[in-house]
Nucleic acid binder design. Structure first.
Length: 512
RNA sequence: GCGCCGUUCGUCUAGGGGUUAGGACACCACCCUUUCACGGUGGUAACACGGGUUCGAUUCCCGUACGGCGUACCA
């Protein structure tokens, strides 16, 4: 009988949740749901110096916006509560002590300065890997080098210490990563990582292993930046006697900068003009860390998720559009790629456009109505729906609908320069007559009628209808492009259309 | 530096010992159209390099190059 799948997303509350973190959460979620297991959120706040107020709320809110809901979390609780490592502080030390008793860890008393000196010394001696390890630890101040009496005294006096893992000098650790296959590392290349810090808090390495064990995690799905320390974690499971319960590992490829080198960062977003976070973020300490989010940029959560899901994973078919449910059904770890992914915002835009196109018109109309009431403009639901139908096929974002629709409510203040340059006296003369036709018609007018009037007019004046269309658009909207003009006249009404033409005639006369 | 991981069109990717190397985004052209967009059709464009193994390698192995990550009492 297979164990119930239990996976976790374990962010640390140091700021906004990066898009890469969202993807990691998503893959965990998809995997859990696919196997009818549980997805939990655990807050890794063991570094109190990096704690940022509001970050945890942000993370939870961001995931909720994405539709990633946890079965267990600090917010909803669960059988393994608490889900904040700071609240689990008392649980970790015992495991570190156990490792000391069994000879797999030791106390270390070195000061920061002494550690610094050691690194300098090793660097000067051109040591290949300057670290606190099986050979260098014998020159440091720890329970392996100090007389037993002195160790006892130091501990009794309350002197600060850390607990470090005693990395074997000559051994091999192997782990079978679900994405990468067998990874073999020699312990001689690993160092004596700190397990328990001098403030009594565990480091990530200890906390994550202890909690994953206690929370019965079956699969650890996390970013590739953890791959180098995975062998240490494997060793910890062994030392703690939990080998049989050790979760399987899957290390995800990283999201990389669109250009240049390195991981995708906040700076890339600022520089290239796209969000790197799901939601807007206001940093309580550093205003320069404020960031814009996909939500506020007008992306739909389902489009955003769809886009993210196909970064480093693919279904093996040509299907591109997936609902969350479809993603759950299609997802498998075997189809996760190994190579890093250069981030491409164009694909995200395309996804958003696809989703916008298929959005319910009533929903879009509600949005438009909301924007309108913000600007104190009256508009009926029916009219809003008509507008939405017109605007949505050339929109990528929700906000495009509003910015495009504005000229239906406010007459143009200025005119597109390129289009204005093509303004001809010929078109102007037709338009002057057409405005009169519209005025004569007065009141509401349908697109058919508007077209009929224009048709008659151009016929009578013997001018091709195509010649004056751009001018008409310019007069009516101030723009060079947009939806069908007759529909626009219908929406505007005959009188408003006529007066806009008059205004344009006046305004653009100079430019002739 | 050292360790680990990676490398198919510009980007995301499918594929895998014998294929016209497939799809999507972006780009270009044409069609549709009053314009823009949508839509449709078509197009440009890729197996990093060098050695093996093999009848045959883009696919398997080894190097090299390039890239990524790690190398904290950060996660």
């Amino acid at each position: 009988m297979e164990k119930t799948v239990r996976v976790r997303f374990a962010p640390s509350p140091t700021g906004a949740l990066h898009i890469g973190g969202v993807r990691t959460a998503l893959f965990n979620y998809l995997f859990a749901k696919k196997h009818h297991g549980q997805f939990l959120i655990r807050i890794e706040d063991t570094d109190q110096t990096r704690f940022v107020p509001g970050a945890e709320e942000y993370i939870l809110k961001a995931l909720a916006w994405c539709g990633i809901i946890a079965d267990e979390s600090p917010a909803v609780g669960g059988p393994c509560a608490p889900y904040r490592q700071s609240e689990r502080k008392a649980m970790y030390a015992q495991y570190a002590y156990r490792m000391i008793e069994e000879g797999n860890a030791y106390y270390a008393f070195d000061t920061e300065q002494e550690l610094e000196e050691m690194r300098e010394r090793l660097k000067a001696a051109r040591v290949a890997s300057p670290q606190y390890n099986a050979v260098t630890r014998m020159q440091m101040k720890n329970s392996l080098t100090l007389p037993e009496e002195e160790v006892k005294e130091r501990l009794a006096s309350g002197a600060p210490y850390v607990i470090r893992v005693k990395m074997p000098r000559k051994d091999e650790v192997r782990l079978n990563d679900l994405v990468r296959g067998w990874v073999v590392v020699h312990t001689s290349t690993l160092d004596d990582k700190v397990l328990l810090k001098s403030d009594g808090m565990p480091t990530y390495h200890l906390a994550n292993v202890v909690d994953d064990y206690l929370m019965k995690i079956t699969h650890v799905i996390r970013g590739e930046e953890w791959l180098p320390s995975a062998p240490l974690h494997v060793l910890l499971y062994k030392y703690l006697g939990w080998e049989a319960q050790m979760p399987q590992f899957a290390h995800l490829p990283l999201l990389l900068k669109p250009d240049g080198n390195g991981k995708l960062s906040k700076r890339d977003g600022d520089r290239l003009g796209f969000p790197v976070f799901p939601l807007n973020w206001q940093d309580p300490f550093k205003p320069e860390d404020n960031a814009s989010g996909y939500k506020e940029a007008g992306y739909f959560p389902d489009a955003f998720i769809n886009f993210l899901a196909l970064l480093g994973w693919n279904p093996g078919t040509t299907q591109e559009i997936f609902s969350m449910q479809e993603l759950i059904e299609a997802f498998s770890i075997e189809r996760i790629n190994k190579a890093g992914i250069k981030f491409d915002i164009d694909k995200a835009r395309w996804y958003n456009q696809q989703y916008l196109k298929h959005k319910d018109e009533a929903e879009l109309a509600t949005y438009l109505l909301g924007e309108l009431s913000k600007h104190k403009v009256e508009c009926s639901v029916e009219k809003a729906q008509k507008i939405v139908r017109l605007m949505k096929e050339r929109a990528v974002f929700l906000s495009d609908i509003w910015s495009e629709a504005q000229y239906l409510f406010f007459s143009p203040k200025d005119y597109d320069e390129k289009a204005a340059a093509k303004w001809s006296s010929e078109a102007a003369s037709v338009l002057a007559e057409y405005a009169k036709d519209l005025s004569a018609h007065s009141g509401s007018i349908d697109a058919e009628k508007a077209k009929q009037l224009l048709h008659d007019r151009t016929e009578q004046m013997q001018i091709k209808i195509g010649k004056i269309m751009p001018a008409l658009r310019l007069a009516l909207t101030g723009r060079a492009a947009g939806p069908d003009l007759m529909d626009i006249i219908m929406l505007l009404g005959a009188d408003e259309a006529a007066s806009r033409i008059q205004a344009a005639l006046l305004h653009l006369k100079v430019a002739v």
